[in-house]
Amino acid sequence: MFGGGGMNPRKMKQMMKQMGIDVTELDAEEVVIKTADEELVFSDAQVTRMDAQGQETYQVVGEPETRELGASDDADEADDGSDGGIPDSDIEIVAQRAGVSKDEAREALEAEGGDLAAAIANLE
């Protein structure tokens, strides 16, 4: 961004702070990008959020797995059909991460079409 090929990281941080840019590393478990044709799923991706003048920008670094659209829905239904296609393990993850009941977690997952990250974000 700044052409800092040989610039020392501390100097770069200082310059960014002077310009009002705040950079934060996020502890993301999974990032899903949905396009019209497919889903790009990044597991163990490095995610950085940069706040500059009220505008948030996210950078995702990692190797994505490509899935056809709807493939994750089929996999969810195969895991457990008792919750309308949402596996109990997903409900437990959301409940634990967001600190809510399993019923609230299930509702959030259903509202987000089974998207774990979106359900957790909405509950926090």
Score class of each variant (00 low, 15 high):
residue 13 K to D: 06
residue 73 D to S: 13
residue 49 R to D: 08
residue 118 A to K: 08
residue 114 G to P: 09
residue 35 T to N: 00
residue 8 N to E: 15
residue 83 D to N: 15
residue 50 M to Y: 10
residue 30 E to T: 07
residue 82 S to P: 03
residue 9 P to E: 15
residue 78 A to M: 14
residue 94 V to M: 06
residue 25 E to S: 09
residue 65 E to P: 00
residue 56 E to K: 15
residue 40 L to Q: 05
residue 61 V to I: 14
residue 38 E to I: 07
residue 62 G to D: 01
residue 48 T to P: 05
residue 17 K to T: 10
residue 4 G to K: 08
residue 90 D to A: 14
residue 61 V to M: 13
residue 8 N to P: 04
residue 82 S to L: 05
residue 95 A to R: 00
residue 109 L to T: 02
residue 35 T to C: 00
residue 44 D to C: 12
residue 110 E to Q: 04
residue 114 G to K: 02
residue 87 P to K: 01
residue 93 I to E: 07
residue 58 Y to D: 01
residue 120 I to N: 05
residue 84 G to W: 00
residue 81 G to N: 13
residue 93 I to F: 11
residue 40 L to E: 02
residue 60 V to Y: 02
residue 13 K to E: 10
residue 115 D to T: 04
residue 109 L to P: 00
residue 50 M to E: 14
residue 69 L to K: 06
residue 16 M to G: 02
residue 120 I to G: 08
residue 86 I to D: 08
residue 12 M to W: 03
residue 117 A to G: 13
residue 83 D to W: 09
residue 9 P to I: 15
residue 83 D to T: 11
residue 3 G to N: 03
residue 73 D to W: 13
residue 116 L to I: 15
residue 46 Q to R: 11
residue 39 E to Y: 03
residue 105 A to K: 11
residue 36 A to T: 13
residue 57 T to L: 11
residue 49 R to S: 10
residue 61 V to Y: 06
residue 97 R to Q: 15
residue 49 R to Y: 01
residue 34 K to H: 08
residue 19 M to D: 06
residue 95 A to P: 02
residue 57 T to D: 14
residue 54 G to R: 00
residue 105 A to D: 13
residue 42 F to K: 11
residue 79 D to K: 12
residue 87 P to M: 06
residue 89 S to G: 05
residue 91 I to A: 03
residue 50 M to A: 07
residue 5 G to Y: 04
residue 54 G to W: 02
residue 71 A to H: 14
residue 7 M to R: 12
residue 14 Q to K: 09
residue 43 S to F: 10
residue 77 E to R: 15
residue 22 D to N: 14
residue 100 V to S: 01
residue 50 M to S: 11
residue 84 G to V: 05
residue 55 Q to M: 15
residue 27 D to I: 04
residue 68 E to C: 10
residue 11 K to W: 00
residue 15 M to G: 05
residue 13 K to N: 11
residue 7 M to H: 04
residue 95 A to M: 01
residue 79 D to N: 09
residue 54 G to Y: 03
residue 90 D to Y: 05
residue 45 A to Q: 09
residue 120 I to M: 12
residue 36 A to D: 13
residue 105 A to G: 09
residue 88 D to C: 03
residue 72 S to F: 09
residue 44 D to F: 10
residue 7 M to P: 03
residue 34 K to E: 12
residue 106 R to C: 01
residue 44 D to M: 12
residue 113 G to E: 07
residue 33 I to F: 04
residue 12 M to G: 00
residue 123 L to D: 03
residue 106 R to E: 08
residue 31 V to Q: 00
residue 56 E to H: 15
residue 70 G to K: 12
residue 52 A to Q: 13
residue 108 A to E: 01
residue 99 G to E: 04
residue 2 F to H: 10
residue 39 E to S: 08
residue 89 S to F: 11
residue 67 R to W: 07
residue 53 Q to W: 14
residue 124 E to K: 05
residue 16 M to T: 02
residue 31 V to P: 00
residue 66 T to I: 14
residue 112 E to I: 00
residue 29 E to W: 08
residue 57 T to W: 06
residue 16 M to V: 00
residue 39 E to K: 03
residue 34 K to Q: 08
residue 109 L to R: 02
residue 93 I to K: 09
residue 112 E to A: 09
residue 70 G to R: 08
residue 63 E to L: 04
residue 66 T to A: 11
residue 61 V to T: 14
residue 15 M to S: 04
residue 60 V to Q: 02
residue 86 I to G: 05
residue 80 D to Q: 05
residue 120 I to Q: 05
residue 71 A to L: 09
residue 88 D to V: 06
residue 69 L to A: 09
residue 114 G to F: 01
residue 38 E to Q: 14
residue 7 M to N: 05
residue 117 A to R: 14
residue 108 A to V: 06
residue 54 G to V: 11
